[in-house]
Write a protein that binds this DNA or RNA. Structure first.
Length: 362
DNA sequence: AACTATTCCAACCGCAACAAA
DNA sequence: ATTTGTTGCGGTTGGAATAGT
């Protein structure tokens, strides 16, 4: 999938990653950990730029990725968070364990947007695609000032395990006082200081406070949810509460962190189905060892387990198994489809197991 | 069956932010 | 203070898969 001819002096491969490249990258990270992306291609023997390697890892190869269809709860949460944060995909993804910002973004653009429009809601503003008059009344800065019940689109049962009870738009928005659109609302986080168990929607607090927590930029940044969004991935991988780096950037952990202990990396996301036939299955995801490594009892792991349990109904049969190991199947890239590639897949699985073991031991 | 249109998503690009030199 | 290198983020795009005719 060469997007552009590109005129770089150094010939770098572009487009879809081959299983061999994936394997190289996985093996490299297994050996050295992630970080120092600029040096990864050289060491790993990849003809890719470091940036591309990083992206591939974050968006596709990471073991704690939860592939497959978004659940109703996730969808609702995305809509909620988008109404508050706008296109801050990394921050939204940070609240969705196992999801990447890219994935959330794509999901939004391909599905939610359309859905909202069908319901007469402007996906950009979360306001009704009003017949002339109404929309004009709202001031541009108070993006949620007009926020109808319908906009919440909480189609899941009210008060579901991961979602707040259906609250009226008014109580949800107005009760927080002025919302200046700059995230200026000073709100507490949930009472344990985290957005635990996927719960910015904390169960035992009143709703307003919870959403105030969401609105607090710091709280959002410091969420303890394991995530694969670009911004928080490495924190979760390293078993470090992102809160520890809340006011920092991930660079320190990113760079040459060979001591990452991803043992608690998003455990519980062992199953998934896919949306519209885009089954992505990675060998890692079968690695019970990874999830079983979650022993430090942090909230993230618990949250992940809890959330993963919600997906229990999703069956492995959704994947294509051939000869004992799964194949990649996805819309845009059908990897390991033929026998040769299947052999590669087997290798990849083996390597992944090795990787998982290594990580658990780290 | 063949062709066209649409959908979906992996990957790329450019820019911003940050740290180190 | 400036330059350089690296990472993070959001927007965009190309093309395979799928749906429709």
């Amino acid at each position: 999938m060469s997007k552009r001819p590109g005129g770089t002096k150094k010939r770098l491969k572009r487009g879809l990653w081959s299983p061999e490249e994936d394997e190289k990258l996985m093996n490299h990270i297994a050996k050295y950990g992630n970080g120092c992306w600029s040096s990864v291609p050289k060491i790993a023997g990849l003809e890719r730029c470091g940036k591309s390697c990083r992206l591939r890892w974050i968006n596709y190869l990471r073991p704690d990725l939860k592939r497959g269809a978004f659940s109703q709860e996730e969808e609702d949460l995305i809509i909620h968070l988008h109404s508050i944060l706008g296109n801050k995909w990394s921050q939204i993804a940070a609240q969705l364990p196992g999801r990447t910002d890219n994935e959330v973004k794509n999901f939004w653009n391909s599905f939610i947007k359309k859905k909202l429009r069908q319901r007469g809601i402007d996906p950009a503003t979360h306001k009704p695609l009003a017949p002339a008059g109404a929309a004009a009344a709202a001031t541009p800065v108070s993006r949620s000032a007009v926020f109808s019940e319908a906009e919440l689109i909480l189609s899941s049962p009210v008060g579901g395990p991961h979602m707040p009870p259906l609250v009226s738009a008014e109580s949800y928005v107005y009760s927080r006082g002025s919302m200046d659109g700059a995230g200026g609302v000073v709100g507490g986080c949930s009472d344990d200081g985290s957005l635990s168990s996927l719960s910015g929607y904390n169960n035992n607090n009143n709703q307003t406070a919870d959403f105030a927590g969401y609105l607090d930029a710091d709280a959002l940044h410091g969420a303890v949810i394991p995530s694969v969004s670009s911004s928080s991935t490495l924190n979760s991988m390293a078993g470090v509460s992102p809160g520890g780096a809340a006011n920092g950037n991930a660079t320190d952990e990113l760079c040459c962190n060979n001591n990452n202990n991803p043992s608690n990396s998003g455990s519980g996301f062992e199953s998934s189905t896919t949306q519209s036939s885009s089954n992505h299955h990675l060998p890692w995801l079968e690695l019970g060892s990874i999830s079983s490594c979650t022993e430090d009892g942090n909230a993230a792991g618990a949250a992940a387990d809890h959330y993963g349990a919600a997906l229990d109904e999703l069956k492995w049969s959704d994947y294509v198994f051939d000869g004992g190991y799964p194949q990649y199947h996805q819309q845009g890239q059908c990897i390991y489809g033929d026998s040769k590639a299947a052999a590669d897949a087997a290798t990849a699985q083996f390597d992944a197991h090795g990787l998982g073991i290594n990580w658990c031991l780290n």
